[in-house]
Design a protein around this nucleic acid. Structure first.
Length: 290
DNA sequence: AAACAGGGGTTAA
DNA sequence: TTAACCCCTGTT
């Protein structure tokens, strides 16, 4: 699924199959990657600042050795999963999927840090992407470690730091009513720090119930967390866009979230989560059902 | 200029 | 099932 081409000057050149940074970084699963308007992407993930160049074919990771790539980024970019075969299976299933897959052909579902997706998707509720990114940047620069001077990049803040702030302090990040969710989530994790490290060993269903017990996490956010942390690739987050595209393409009428979820699990099977991502990206970029 | 609608929802009633 | 929630953005 990937082939390292060279490692000169501590820059790692790698061919990644089924990868297009526009599709992967802009399909709504992450909020900390930014495009320079030409061919460079910068991002913060796993406590690290990353800069990469994509020429339409191969990726050049700056300031990265092979060891780090294999240890951290192969997992982050889900490089051991064969998206070609996934896309083939989906394209065979029906015309809608065929269309959606060929549109977002370079989507890879990232395996992101669990705490980061928990907080990010609490913030995402009833909110738009530019503002979500702004809130996360504000939290990071206020409470995270500075990890790159040149680019002014800050790591995602630890929950311990947030747990020891006040609601008043947090309000400066402009998350509005979500600030109390942020604070209570951080405090609960700070009270039981082993919770997150052990949670990946549990069955997905149990993880979902635990997530739902947090203030500020409902079904949609819980499913985002499961899917984007890599805990459950059959999670199917249903937001306005997914609801609309599913109604338009598969039901031809208004349908409850529960019915959509039941149908999706039985129809998409083990590819439920990635199907959602192709359909969501396709629907949003093409304003399907608006 | 001010009002309005809506945003990758969740909570509480 | 429904309104209220903080607050920003785009539209009249």
């Amino acid at each position: 699924m990937y082939r390292i081409i060279s490692t000169k000057n501590n820059n790692l050149k790698v061919k990644i199959n089924d990868f297009n940074p526009f599709h992967t970084f802009l399909c709504g699963q992450c909020f900390r990657w930014n495009y320079d308007g030409e061919r460079f992407w910068t991002g913060v993930a796993l406590g690290r600042f990353v800069r990469l160049e994509w020429d339409g074919e191969v990726c050049l990771f700056y300031d990265m050795d092979e060891q780090e790539f294999v240890d951290k980024w192969v997992n982050y970019f889900d490089l051991n999963t064969d998206y070609s075969s996934i896309k083939k299976r989906l394209a065979k299933k029906d015309e809608h999927l065929k269309e959606a897959v060929s549109y977002g052909y370079g989507i890879r579902l990232l395996r992101q840090d669990l705490w980061e997706v928990i907080l990010s998707f609490i913030i995402s509720q009833n909110n738009g992407i530019p503002r979500i990114k702004g809130i996360i940047e504000a939290l990071s620069s206020s409470y995270g470690k500075k990890i790159n001077k040149e680019y002014g990049a800050y790591a995602f803040p630890d929950f311990t730091v947030l747990a020891n702030t006040s609601l008043q302090d947090l309000n400066t990040c402009r998350a509005g009513y979500r600030c109390k969710y942020i604070l209570s989530t951080a405090q609960r994790l700070d009270d039981s720090p082993s919770l997150l490290s052990n949670i990946r060993k549990l069955p997905a269903k149990e993880v979902r119930d635990i997530l739902l017990s947090f203030i500020g996490i409902g079904e949609k956010v819980a499913d985002c967390i499961l899917l984007y942390s890599g805990i459950d690739r059959t999670a199917f987050p249903i937001d306005r866009w997914v609801k609309r595209v599913m109604e338009e393409l598969y039901f031809k009428k208004e349908t409850s979230v529960k019915d959509i979820r039941d149908f999706s699990h039985s129809y998409f099977g083990d590819l439920t989560g990635i199907s959602q991502q192709y359909l969501f990206y396709y629907a949003r970029e093409n304003k399907i059902g608006v």
